[in-house]
Design a binder for these strands. Structure first.
Lengths: 218, 218, 218, 218
DNA sequence: GATGAATGAGGCTTCATTCAT
DNA sequence: CATGAATGAAGCCTCATTCAT
């Protein structure tokens, strides 16, 4: 039930923004009663946090699984960012949810702030990146990624978009152009997203809703 | 009257976010009646847009005035971004307003999307930056700047923050490290913000409100 | 408008009790919008207080006007209580409202606690009543009157009820039986209740509502 | 289980009033499930009645046991009222419960309406009290007692309170001052309240709850 | 019996918007 | 133009009650 609510909340937040009054829509989308909602979440805000964490955790874990064998910290960062952006693009509902949440919700618990620092520090230690306060580095990455996701959420798909964003980030971190290009030209893996993941469930539910709407309209 | 409303709206948006229900607070802060508000703005949204444009235009013009004599496009971009960030930091209310609005409102009318492209293109033309779709470049800059403003709006002030952000952007755009550092090490001008500017008026009004609150409380 | 709301609130409180959730009923009875209600009363509780004060003040003033020429404090108290009970009995809606409010709402601002003490003290000073802590005296009177009003609100009308209640109170205060009887046997005045008083308006509105109900039913 | 629910209900009613929404609190206080509650009481109202009767019956029986040997009806009434008030004062939770219930719930089943009439009638028969409709007499007593309990429930303890209230009642019933004083100056017995009585259980449970609250808070 | 998740009616409150003065 | 009372749709939240396990 909790899962059902979260699943539907993704949709609604994606449509109306993380600040919007959402409870009514969620309970309608999830086909449960208002009361049930309050058995699980004391308020709108907690729901938003729960959704955010759930999505982020899921994606984090999938990406980490995929990149854990990459030894080179720079390659690992590049691959992680690439996978993140590519995956998000494949799941428009998630993309929209993330742009709606903005930097605010991507708070200190977010994917980026948890998983990146060790690798960045290693890269700095190895002299691959010049030293810089970690907060500035993370803001830089988060800002760029957020803007890229926002662009994607508008439905625009620019040629080579993900790769170019990753190159920009690597360069911004201080990697020479040539190396940045080389690293992002490597063949990159693709994530396997389980059918039962929140990403997939939210997306399917969205498709279903759209289909239902059309039926009702006609 | 329009000015008065906008001036007060900056504060309220800064506090409660651009999506929040705001009209009541604005009319109270501005000491006008609800009805009057509707003589000037058909709705909340138009107000947010108006505020955003007003602030952006003002700042754009001030910055352009200051940088128009800089010939080198890269230096000009760097200086513009530097001035933007430094100014915003001096006006916390504005900083908060901007982080609250996020990328969404900074939309196609924003400072960045209007004034930067020519100079970027010139820099690309001169071979200073590698070619890249302009949208990606602008997203990259907007994202990084937004994240930096967000950080500043939290009240954190990291040493050398503005300069490092500008360096990251220049590098991200493809400028070699050495040159990026050199350009941002130049002595940079400082903006003269007129007393009657919206930036200043909003800030002063904010100070006044805080003072009033303390008086009322005691 | 405030008057209109209070007027209708009397009815609803009379029916459902002072603690009941009443706003919806009041706005319906008064034929105004929910929003309007909140322009006048921040909540249920404030409404209850307002109604209570309004009714009490009105009745207090009418009674005081009527008894102000009575020199003897005991006669004055007796007459005041008599008028209070008789009047309340003539206005069943008010009687019901008062029994619903109980002792709690008849709090320190009530009629009884404001107007009686000086006369009681004079009577004690003149040796008509034995001395007793004023709180106990007032509780005694308030309790007896409340119970009498409660009885009246049930629609029961016992022969000679008001006079016997007043006799009991006078005796309880320490007046010898003979004198208590003598005082309450005097011809007693009757209040003139203005047509525009809340008492009358509430009562008329009640009649109207009952009539409407019958019409709707048939 | 029924006993457990009632025991806890006393507390909750004492705190929030007999009309309040109470089931949740009761099941939490009693540590049983919602469902169980409905196996014992069809609704809030029945619970309130059950609690009220249980408390009243218990106290009635204890008092009757104590006064059954008093031959003089007036003394018996006086002693009964005295014991009632003194006992209630010793059990603040009960006092609060009773003031919250008010006259309404003390209805026709109450202690007062069941046990007093015979003795009053005897007293009238013996010429100790003047004749008066029994309903008025009982209302008079119930009203005065209720007000006294209400006062006690506020935590106020006036010197000699109980005795003075009893004197007022006796006088109000028509007993001459001197006799009223004499009767209430006799040494009066004190009730023995069994440890397992509802009065005691409710009080202990209240103490426990308060203790738990303090622990949780610290 | 006991349980507790689910329900949904019912009541509360806010706030953008209108409109007569 | 300015006003501010009135509006009512839209959302929030609680809590008595049911029911499958």
């Amino acid at each position: 039930m909790r899962a059902r609510l979260i699943e539907n909340a993704v949709l609604v937040f994606a449509e109306k923004g993380t600040d919007a009054s959402v409870i009514d829509d969620v309970v309608e989308a999830a086909n449960v009663s208002r009361g049930t909602f309050y058995n699980y979440f004391p308020s709108n805000a907690e729901l938003a946090v729960a959704v955010s964490e759930e999505l982020a955790n899921e994606l984090m874990i999938l990406i980490e699984d995929c990149v854990e064998d990459i030894e080179d910290p720079v390659e690992r960062i590049a691959t992680g960012l690439y996978l993140f952006l590519e995956t998000v693009k494949t799941f428009p509902v998630t993309a929209r949810f993330m742009s709606q949440s903005g930097l605010g919700i991507a708070g200190p618990e977010s994917l980026i702030y948890e998983f990146l620092p060790p690798h960045i520090e290693r890269a700095v230690g190895e002299g691959r990146f010049p030293a810089m306060p970690i907060t500035i580095t993370l803001d830089f990455i988060a800002g760029t990624v957020t803007a890229a996701v926002f662009r994607a959420s508008l439905g625009v798909d620019l040629a080579d978009h993900t790769r170019l964003v990753v190159v920009s980030i690597l360069q911004g971190l201080g990697l020479p152009q040539a190396e940045a290009s080389r690293i992002s030209d490597r063949p990159l893996p693709c994530l396997e997203i389980p059918e039962t993941s929140l990403l997939n469930r939210a997306e399917r539910r969205f498709q279903k809703r759209e289909a239902d709407k059309k039926l009702t309209a006609s």
